[in-house]
């Protein structure tokens, strides 16, 4: 090894790294290196641990009923809250609405996100790709509440859409505060997530594969059906799961675009905690939501695998 000349000094950031390494050696000696993996996931374990503690507390609260005369939680445990939640037709309607909207939103979002992601991956010109990315992300940066408010302005009874319709002689109609408006808002909100999760899956499909399918005799609908969709399946499952769980537990969009008449489970939970102050019933609803969501996601995992969420692991 050639000796560096005496006046030679390693650059500052190299010496800094050396110092960091020496300190790391003191704090976490090399013989502990086979446990280093645990060190890395320690922050995540801490976070999940806190969540579990919170869940235990919620589970405890869900078993206590509210005394409406004293506004105190009962000392004894009972399943009264669950009975109330599961037998109430109001909550059944809310649950069904959340679930159907989540399924509908997932399907619509995937249908819209797939061509968008495909265009993003396949487009040759850099400026078109940039334009597509900016169009995708601009609403992403605005935040859910402001965006929902924007829709109130655009879709309101005297909003832009109704103004435009009145120009061609259509009488103003109610576009807001219904199921359609909520699903519309949710799809618009979820689209960037879905596109972002689909892009890696589509990037993994070489363009040559599409060309090859064409040269073997497949027209483009058949290329889509027999080659692109099956090969993009992991991305579709990953994107679908994320959109589904985010939608199922969404709060802001149904609250603002639903106008109080289109509540999701999260809104019902909010009401119990902060309006009625019935922590017990709110906790029971929250746990039912967690359980239902987990069971549904678990079913998808079992049937289709975890898609891209498995990070390359086998199902």
């Amino acid at each position: 090894m050639p000796n560096p000349s005496p006046e030679f000094r390693y650059p500052l950031h190299w010496r800094l790294m050396d110092a960091v390494e020496r300190i790391a050696d003191l704090v976490w000696p090399r013989r502990l290196s086979r446990h280093t993996g645990w060190l890395f996931i320690a922050p995540a374990l801490l976070l999940v641990g806190l969540l579990v503690l919170g869940l235990i507390q919620i589970a405890d609260a869900s078993l206590r009923t509210l005394d409406t005369s004293t506004f105190l939680m009962s000392e004894d445990w009972s399943t009264e809250n669950y009975r109330k939640a599961l037998s109430s037709s109001t909550y059944l309607t809310v649950a069904w609405r959340s679930l159907s909207a989540a399924v509908l939103t997932t399907v619509l979002t995937l249908i819209l996100a797939f061509p968008y992601a495909w265009a993003l991956v396949r487009v040759k010109k850099a400026w078109i790709r940039k334009a597509l990315l900016i169009t995708l992300f601009l609403p992403f940066f605005i935040g859910q509440v402001v965006r929902a408010y924007g829709w109130l302005i655009i879709l309101g009874n005297s909003g832009m859409v109704n103004e435009a319709l009145s120009l061609v002689g259509v009488t103003p109609m109610r576009l807001l505060f219904n199921y359609g408006a909520v699903v519309f808002g949710l799809v618009q909100y979820m689209l960037p997530f879905a596109v972002l999760l689909l892009v890696p899956a589509l990037t993994a499909i070489p363009e040559e594969t599409e060309t090859a399918a064409g040269s073997l005799g497949a027209s483009w609908p058949r290329i889509l059906w027999h080659v692109l969709l099956p090969m993009a399946k992991p991305g579709l499952i990953g994107a679908g799961l994320v959109v589904f769980t985010l939608t199922l537990t969404d709060f802001a969009v149904p609250a603002m675009l639903g106008g109080g008449g289109q509540d999701f489970i999260a809104n019902a939970i909010y009401d119990q905690f902060f309006r009625t102050a019935d922590q017990g019933l709110g906790s029971a609803l929250a746990l039912i939501l967690v359980a239902a969501g987990s069971v549904l996601v678990g079913l998808v995992f079992m049937i289709f695998g975890a898609g891209t969420l498995a990070m390359g692991g086998r199902k």
Binding site: P206, E208, T209, T211, A212, A213, G214, S215, L216, G217, A218, S219, V227, P230, M231, K233
Partner: peptide, 20 residues
């Protein structure tokens, strides 16, 4: 004629087999 109606078989550089 459209690519999928041509009577041309092609072996591609990266083969482009269908992994699924």
């Amino acid at each position: 004629v459209a690519p999928h109606r041509r009577s041309v078989g092609m072996v591609f550089q990266k083969l482009a087999l269908f992994p699924h």
